[in-house]
């Protein structure tokens, strides 16, 4: 589906990414993790085709992604950005409709009617009651749902998520990733997600890529990545790894060096 080959990104004289290579097959969910400043967001920009690598290349279904016309690419690749939709005076429905932009001609017309699709996306994200509210009156979590509804109507083959759970309450974090996962399984959608929560990453992703200082520190299935030595090396945190009692997926417990303060009774 998508493949990165020896991708290097240099900004000024700083190497943001060095020799990153990996490939993601159709219908897979691929996670990118790593500490802040490791180059995760930059890598996602390169994968979305809005930015070109300094050297190396990103291939989308065998074709150099920078050679595909922007509007054609937007019919197949959608991006859910960090922070969701900014405050704007547009209504929820108007913003969701904007997801159809790549399919419209300059008069805003489409070959087929997309109203049903838009209604469905709004309903799936539980936004029906808010459909005619302006997005600047919504909470951060509601706006993130609007953003997801917008990428849904874009009907992509590849979905890129940039820290989609930041600023969300834990309930919404799980809800959002469940929705993406369900969608991935139903439609053979390929997903690449930058995640900062390692436990969620281990749970939802088939494979993980660990970035450190712009290099690949490790990649493989969650069971191979969730190792105390690796976590200490990359994140500088001591951790205990336990299997999840319900699913058996490796989960991480932080192990601070200072013992907890004594309880006063």
């Amino acid at each position: 589906m998508i493949e990165a080959k020896q991708v290097v990104k240099r900004i000024g004289n700083r190497d943001i990414l060095q020799e990153i290579s990996f490939s993601v097959g159709i219908g897979r969910m691929y996670g990118i993790i790593g500490p802040n400043g490791a180059g995760k967001t930059t890598l996602l920009q390169l994968l979305s085709g809005t930015d070109a690598p300094t050297s190396g290349e990103v291939l989308f279904q065998g074709q150099a992604i920078t050679s595909i016309k922007r509007k054609d690419l937007a019919k197949r690749v959608a991006v859910l950005q960090q922070g969701g939709i900014p405050a704007a005076a547009f209504t929820v429905r108007e913003v969701v409709q904007m997801g159809r932009f790549p399919f419209q001609n300059w008069l805003g017309e489409e070959s087929a009617d997309s109203e049903q699709l838009i209604d469905d996306a709004i309903e799936t994200m539980g936004l029906t009651a808010l459909a005619n509210r302006q997005v600047d009156q919504l909470s951060g979590g509601e706006r993130q749902r609007v953003a997801l509804a917008k990428v849904m109507v874009q009907e992509p083959e590849l979905l890129l998520l940039d820290e989609p759970t930041t600023y969300l309450d834990i309930g919404y974090q799980v809800q959002l990733l469940d929705t993406v996962k369900r969608w991935q399984q139903e439609r053979q959608l390929t997903v690449i997600a930058v995640l900062h929560d390692l436990n969620l990453a281990a749970h939802y992703c088939d494979e993980l890529l660990v970035l450190q200082h712009g290099r690949t520190a490790a990649d493989g299935p969650p069971s191979a990545i969730m190792k105390p030595e690796l976590i200490l090396d990359v994140f500088g945190a001591r951790a205990v790894i336990l299997p999840h009692p319900e699913t058996g997926v490796p989960q991480l417990l932080l192990a601070p060096s200072v013992p907890p303060s004594e309880r006063r009774s």
């Binding site: 922007r70 937007a74 991006v79 950005q81 900014p86 704007a88 547009f90």
Partner: peptide, 23 residues
């Protein structure tokens, strides 16, 4: 007017616009 819808997408930010296929 040909660029009016582009300008609408700009309201959401340049990155949003780029990801929706605006050059």
């Amino acid at each position: 007017f040909r660029y009016a819808q582009h300008l609408n997408l700009f309201v959401l930010g340049e990155r949003h616009a780029a990801h929706l296929g605006v050059n």
